[in-house]
Design a protein around this nucleic acid. Structure first.
Lengths: 254, 254
DNA sequence: AGAGATAATTACGACTAGCGTAACATCGAC
DNA sequence: GTCGATGTTACGCTAGTCGTAATTATCTCT
């Protein structure tokens, strides 16, 4: 699941594997021992021992049918984490304000492991709205999350862009050169608008949250159904987003 | 921090210690390596290796001043856990409804490691309100959380009650025999009201969430400032609480 | 600013924790 | 009831991991 080069040793393998298990259970609720073991390529006894250890501490819970889910300790950890991670703690109220004003779903995304990862969100009270989910990953090369890529040093940027660009819809950019051009444009204008690049019916607008040195910390995003989003709405979103992003930057101390 | 008897081996110690570390960071944000090490009684190199392993995976994050906090992966895990733990997923909307009606703070608590543990909460929009916190622990013997104790088998009950009862305020019950009597009363009437047993100025009312076999799963709770809570309010809370508790029971499949 | 104290990190040999194999038990399906 | 699959246990061997002790970085106080 994750190991490119032999990877240097200074880490505790058992712990590393156990994190794999945890993430596996998070991603696949009600997964069975055998499944986990083959998902991460380890032996069953090993995984069993780890699950047992984590179960005693309430990190996972084994149902009476033998399937595993995350447990209450994970909830406690997550709640504590939300208040400890500055970015999330600060962004949350701002995301909500932004979401109220735009009356659409908002997200905060960071780069994690070559993908964009949603770490905070707000969904307005509205019958039809874009659904966001903390923990959901998306390619960096599709949709407005490209802003996360646009401000990186060209070298790092190159590494982040895979050889074949995943094609999510027929509007997704699949040509590397074209993507680079797009990234330059994004950097120039300071935002990115995606019309159906990730999902056919959705419009997505993102703006970078920048650190004092101009490096990207995260991206704030508004997602809306295409049918009710006019050009003028997009323009409005951009203004709101830039405001939100600079508030977050400021509150982070810049 | 936790080890009663030598504790049998079938668990992975490294993982167990690493959970200790995680919980320690959760409880003490911005803790340093040395602190963690002595908090849980392990050597520094060992803890360092574990922190490094977890940092690579985003479970913890090391600030540039060398202190540790939980990381984004912990948020992701916690969010996933909230949707995977049936009790919490089901209770959340019910807690909110209850909290809206009572216009006071509501909590869901379970027994965990001989204490009561808050695993879900709702706070109403109100200038002055009781503050609740997911992950906060309280004694089982003080306040309305006694309901969690009341329905246990007498044997188990005895084990849960420590020899000396922690005295949080001067209204806290500190006499064992008196506590037992109180527990019997709670079981008879199906709820527990606490006037300032945990915190001087607070009223707390709890009702048990029962399984089909009459065992306690959790406790639902309303907490309110004493000065604005009349006898009639308490009665109203009890009705609301019983309703909420039975809804949760029902949705859990009973 | 420099000396002393404290904390973080590295290196490495020793040892046992923890791994895998393989046998066994349990469960489900047909 | 038999077969296949999954979960669990036992145990001997090995390498992962631990602690000591030395080293470096960081902080503190005068």
């Amino acid at each position: 699941m994750n190991d490119q080069p032999p990877e240097k040793n200074n880490i505790v393998q058992a712990v590393d594997v156990c994190i794999d298990v945890l993430l596996n259970v998070a991603k696949n609720p009600d997964v069975r021992l055998t499944e986990i073991a083959q998902n991460i390529g380890e032996s069953k006894p090993r995984i069993l021992r780890m699950l047992r250890t984590m179960e005693r501490r309430g990190l996972v819970r084994k149902s009476d049918t033998g399937t595993y889910r995350l447990g209450t300790t994970a909830i406690v950890l997550g709640t504590a984490a939300s208040t400890q991670v500055d970015l999330v703690r600060i962004a949350n109220p701002i995301l909500e304000e932004l979401g109220q004003k735009a009356n659409e779903t908002t997200q905060l995304r960071i780069i994690d492991n070559g993908e964009s990862l949603c770490i905070a969100k707000f969904e307005p009270m509205r019958d039809l709205r874009v659904q966001a989910m903390i923990g959901r990953r998306r390619p960096l090369t599709a949709g407005s999350y490209k802003v996360l890529l646009a401000y990186l040093h060209p070298q790092v940027q190159q590494q982040m862009i895979p050889d074949i660009l995943p094609k999510l819809t027929n509007r997704t950019i699949t040509d590397r050169a074209k993507l680079i051009l797009e990234l330059e444009k994004i950097k120039r204008q300071g935002f990115c608008v995606s019309f159906g690049e990730v999902s056919e019916q959705l419009v997505s607008v993102s703006v970078p949250v920048l650190a004092f040195d101009g490096s990207v910390i995260a991206a704030v995003n508004v997602g809306a159904p295409a049918f009710r989003t006019q050009r003028s709405d997009v323009d409005r979103f951009i203004v709101l987003l830039k405001d939100a992003a600079s508030k977050i930057s400021a509150r982070l101390g810049w």
